[in-house]
Design a protein around this nucleic acid. Structure first.
Length: 511
RNA sequence: GCCGCCAUCGUCUAGCCCGGUCAGGACGCCAGGUUUUCAUCCUGGAAAUCAGGGGUUCGAAUCCCCUUGGCGGUACCA
């Protein structure tokens, strides 16, 4: 077999869709597993749906996820000078660089190529010029639907326009499209890597437009030409392409080109089992990044949506490295998978627990910076040391990075609470005051050097004896102003000696 | 409408190819335990008559057929 070459080919119509990320991931994993090449190309042939900045956004989401390309489209600042491969700047996107022998990798920069091949198809009598205007096309479609027929093009231009007329219209710059001449009564069959044998009767296939009147190719033409010229060996893409694959096969045949292998991935569905859409919540990878999900969790989660390593594998946590080793395209499911956030949350929490405090700190800073309670906190509560302590305590409770501090705002703000909250069970005021004084005494007895979690715990537990609640509950509330919080020892440790004593003092003053 | 694809706990799934364990795991849910609260963690539980119906077979989630349902496509969008 030729060296494996696969591609991810998004359209710059918005941000990277979570389903797109999964397609990219499966392509990437398939390439890695087989020692192949992973290529990123851009399908920007629809000028109406083009979104400014989308190419750059697509690239940055892919990079965030760590799906490194071997070839294709990159940001300029990513390209190091020592690349041995051919590199060149994109014509249409200023910040973008293309790397590889098969470029350009952006379809809008390959227009001449598509035109040439489309004309070749006409010359071979595999395609024809069509001069029909949209009005007529719409009318034909309406009639067919009214007659309960498939709404296909009626081949008017193939049947009624003579070659002389074609030449005349071409010379006078009439708008035209080029359509595929689909042969009649043919069963088109192919072997899909995940679905097995798929077959369709050519009579149900429309004479697909290949070149649009604006001079741009349609997806069908462009992707086939690219895949051939770029030596793509495996076309791994979403299931929505399954019905048009026979058109692509017809195209390969018309050109006399070798047909690549196909693998059509099941769709990602929202909880109502419909195709995952914006209405059901976030679908853009960027949104997940903003919401504090880790790339490890997203990759892990999305990998298992429609694929499983097989019998005997009961593990749920897989790193990208592991996935690269065990991925098998033949084990991809056929049925669509519902995208359910609960398991993602669980996975995310698992990965957060596994992080070092340094890592957690590094990734949490930008989330802290978005919080009002953090921004208005005093300087000493924004130091690296202080935040790392907060994070140490929060680590096992965090589900998303964006939650940092949310449940422990008292680490950053003045606290305010009702005196009654201080009371453990039916403690008297007397006993309560005594309890707080006792805590104060214990904490005062620990010097700054000894202000370590372990030491604080030891001393406080020793003082509490077997009536832990009597001592610890009032202390918790005094330090946090909250009923739910980390342990009072952790609170004291994070807050530091002075702040802890201050908060205790003001609790005592409430009584 | 027409064409195509698909179908195991609420969700992600193992098992299906090579018929023969109470159909296994994970998330979520419920209960209990650990714990000064919350979270973590541990233990246990409920949860799929394998979409339905027919075959084939001593025996079917697994093989065959039909039905139903869901999804996708049906654009000068990808």
């Amino acid at each position: 077999m030729d060296k494996v070459r696969v591609r991810f080919a998004p359209s710059p119509t918005g941000y990277l869709h979570i389903g797109g990320l999964r397609s990219a991931l499966y392509n990437y994993l398939f390439a890695k597993k087989n020692g192949g090449t992973f290529i990123l190309k851009i399908e920007d042939t629809d000028r109406k749906r083009f979104v400014e900045g989308a190419v750059e956004s697509l690239i940055s989401s892919l990079d965030w996820a760590g799906l490194d390309r071997d070839e294709g489209v990159f940001m300029k600042n990513q390209v190091s000078g020592s690349e041995s491969q051919k590199t060149f700047e994109s014509e249409n996107y200023p910040g973008v660089m293309e790397i590889g022998e098969f470029g350009p990798y952006i379809q809008s920069e390959r227009l001449n190529l598509y035109k040439k091949y489309a004309e070749e198809l006409v010359a071979k009598d595999k395609a024809y010029y069509c001069f029909c205007e949209q009005d007529r096309l719409d009318k034909v479609k309406e009639e067919k639907i009214a007659n309960k027929q498939a709404p296909m093009y009626d081949r008017y231009c193939l049947k009624n326009v003579t070659p002389e007329e074609v030449n005349g219209k071409l010379k006078s710059n009439c708008a035209y499209t080029i359509r595929l001449k689909v042969p009649a009564d043919e069963i088109i069959e192919f072997e899909d890597l995940v679905r097995g044998k798929v077959s369709i009767n050519s009579n149900t296939i429309d004479d697909q437009v290949l070149m649009k009147s604006d001079g741009f190719p349609t997806y069908h033409l462009a992707s086939v030409i690219d895949d051939h010229l770029m030596c793509t060996t495996h076309v791994i893409r979403g299931e929505e392409w399954l019905p048009s694959t026979p058109k692509h096969i017809l195209l390969y045949r018309a050109f006399g080109w070798e047909i690549p292998e196909f693998a059509h991935l099941p769709l990602l569905l929202s909880t109502d089992k419909k195709k995952l859409s914006k209405r059901m919540g976030d679908v853009a990878v960027e949104d997940y990044i903003k919401n504090g999900y880790l790339k490890e969790a997203i990759i892990n989660f999305v990998a298992l949506l429609g694929w499983h390593p097989g019998e005997g594998e009961t593990q749920e946590i897989y790193s990208l490295d592991e996935l690269e080793k065990i991925f098998d395209i033949k084990r991809v499911h056929k049925a669509g998978a519902v995208f359910d956030l609960q398991k993602l949350d669980w996975l995310n929490a698992q990965y957060i627990k596994k992080m070092s405090v340094d890592e957690l700190y590094g990734q949490s800073l930008k989330f802290f910076a978005q919080k009002d309670f953090y921004n208005s906190a005093p300087k000493e509560m924004k130091t690296e040391e202080y935040l790392k302590k907060v994070l140490t305590v929060e680590q096992e409770r965090l589900v998303r990075l964006s939650d940092v501090g949310e449940n422990d705002k008292f680490f950053f703000t003045n606290i305010d609470y009702d005196k009654a909250m201080l009371r453990w069970k039916d403690m008297s005021d007397e006993a309560l005051k005594e309890s707080l004084e006792k805590s104060k005494k214990v904490l005062m007895g620990i010097d700054e050097q000894g202000w370590e979690l372990k030491n604080i715990e030891e001393k406080l537990f020793a003082a509490a004896g077997d009536k832990k609640g009597d001592l610890l509950w009032p202390l918790r509330v005094a330090l946090s102003g909250a009923q739910k919080s980390p342990s009072p020892m952790e609170l004291a440790w994070v807050l530091g000696k002075q702040e802890s004593l201050d908060r205790l003092e003001s609790a005592i003053n409430k009584i």
